[in-house]
């Protein structure tokens, strides 16, 4: 899929929607504590935005994320999750025990901050995996 669908109407619509989709995705990620949402949902919205641009404009879009970048994103997300989990034992708690983090906040807020970091990691991983799967499946040619 190098060309995309690319009609002018689709192009205009996707240009109009893209910034709002990205912003809504980021909102859903960081607001997951207080409203329906979280890392999975926000990551899916961001990935849907990237895939929309890719579908409409094809490879001509300046937005094409190469599979290598998607893999980096994916592993960064999983690494953030595991890293935040490992901060627990480093500061004298248990694995994935966010209350051990040395932040000067109320105990519940410390745990909320830890799980926010984890949610951001999850969002990166979900964005990366959806983008990677889409890219890999689209690029596959049936050259049997």
């Amino acid at each position: 899929m190098n060309s995309g669908f690319g009609s002018p109407a689709l192009d205009a619509a996707s240009r109009l929607m893209t910034p709002f989709m990205l912003m809504f995705g980021a909102y859903v990620v960081v607001h997951g504590h207080d409203s329906p949402g979280g890392g999975f949902q926000g990551g899916v919205i961001i990935a849907a935005c990237l895939i929309l641009v890719r579908l409409v404009r094809g490879r001509a879009a300046g937005w094409v994320m190469p599979p290598e970048t998607a893999v980096v994103l994916l592993c960064t997300g999983a690494g953030i999750f595991a890293g935040v989990g490992l901060l627990g034992p480093i500061f004298g708690g248990h694995f994935l025990d966010y209350s051990a983090l040395p932040l000067t906040l109320a105990p519940a807020e410390v745990r909320a901050a830890g799980s926010l970091a984890v949610e951001i990691g999850v969002a990166l991983a979900v964005t990366g995996v959806l983008e990677l799967i889409f890219d890999v499946l689209v690029e596959a040619r049936d050259d049997a």
Binding site: L137, A140, D142, D143, A144
Partner: peptide, 15 residues
């Protein structure tokens, strides 16, 4: 996604 990738691979190999 993994299953679709495997299917594409099977189709390439065996037609």
């Amino acid at each position: 996604g993994v299953a679709l990738a495997l299917l594409i691979r099977i189709r390439r190999r065996f037609g």
